[in-house]
């Protein structure tokens, strides 16, 4: 008497293994397609815009004629914008993170702050644009200036920086703080001279990544009505300006075919800046991050 039909069992196992292999290749192909999408995106933009990048592209202002259009105003504008965003968002973000990690007791107020941060992280960037338009541009009368746009962008990336800084501060082991207290240091001395230096690489990496998001963000600028045709360089924080993504947006929506190449060229410049910022961030992470 046979307890089991060996051929049937073997057949079933074989079909299960075959099914596994088929699906494995399906998953693999999906992964390859995702990578391919990125390759197509980059390849397309480079092939379209690379021939447009020359010295004139960096020294010309935008123009009605595609061959004369350049990104001088936009590039300088974006740099000015970062000069506002970087200090504002990093100082506020790190201070908030230090407060939440080192000082905050568990009470309603602090839970409220935490809930606020995670909520703000999910608010669409257009809504931040509306906030900037109403509060900074109109109410405070800053106009469509670098300062107004910079403050709006700072608020937009603030949650990202706070979360990154919180994580960095959390990795500093308790022993380091206790050693500092044991030597007679006060709370603030411990935070400023022990915790922050140890968390610095993590904070820097997170901040640079957040800033690279701010430099490519278009929607809030568009909502605030940041102009795109600017034929002068900003002369101060209250000056009108334009930024790289806005300039690209303007070129991309023009009907003439040639402007699409100009837009692609602008995108290449933007992407190179992003890659540089990201590599610096990764370098800092790999080189300076201590493991306890």
């Amino acid at each position: 008497m046979k307890y089991m039909d060996e051929t049937a069992v073997l057949k079933q196992i074989k079909s299960r293994i075959r099914k596994n292999n088929i699906w494995k290749s399906v998953f693999f192909i999906a992964t390859i397609l995702a990578l391919l999408a990125l390759a197509m995106l980059i390849g397309r933009i480079i092939s379209q815009g690379a021939s447009f990048i020359d010295w004139d592209f960096f020294t010309n202002f935008s123009s009605r004629f595609p061959e004369k259009a350049g990104i001088k105003a936009a590039l300088v504008g974006s740099i000015y914008l970062m000069l506002v965003v970087a200090p504002t968002s990093v100082i506020l973000g790190v201070a908030t993170a230090v407060y939440l990690e080192e000082y905050a007791k568990k009470n309603r107020f602090n839970d409220f702050i935490r809930a606020n941060i995670s909520n703000l992280a999910g608010v669409p960037s257009v809504v931040f644009g509306l906030l900037g338009l109403t509060i900074f541009v109109r109410m405070l009368g800053l106009g469509k200036s670098i300062l107004a746009a910079g403050l709006t962008m700072s608020l937009l990336i603030l949650p990202v920086i706070i979360v990154a800084a919180q994580e960095a501060i959390r990795t500093v082991p308790k022993e380091q703080r206790e050693a500092s207290y044991a030597m007679g240091a006060t709370k603030w001395q411990t935070v400023f001279c022990v915790v922050l230096p140890a968390a610095l690489p993590g904070i820097l990496t997170g901040s640079i990544l957040a800033l690279s998001r701010a430099i490519g963000e278009t929607a809030p600028l568009a909502v605030m009505g940041i102009p795109v045709i600017i034929h002068f360089l900003p002369d101060g924080l209250l000056s009108e300006f334009t930024a790289l993504p806005m300039q690209i947006y303007d070129w991309a929506k023009r009907p003439q075919e040639a402007f699409q190449s100009v837009a692609a060229a602008g995108i290449i410049v933007l992407m190179i800046i992003l890659v540089l910022m990201n590599s610096v961030a990764v370098m800092i992470r790999n080189k300076f991050q201590k493991r306890y």
Binding site: L92, Y99, N116
Partner: peptide
């Protein structure tokens, strides 16, 4: 400094609350 710093930090942390209220108020 020891007394001032926590106050300054709370002020910084309050920016997030102010932002939320700013958005709500505006909308």
């Amino acid at each position: 400094i020891e007394k001032m710093m926590p106050i300054l930090l709370v002020l910084a942390a309050s920016v997030c609350i102010a932002t939320t209220f700013g958005i709500l108020f505006t909308l």
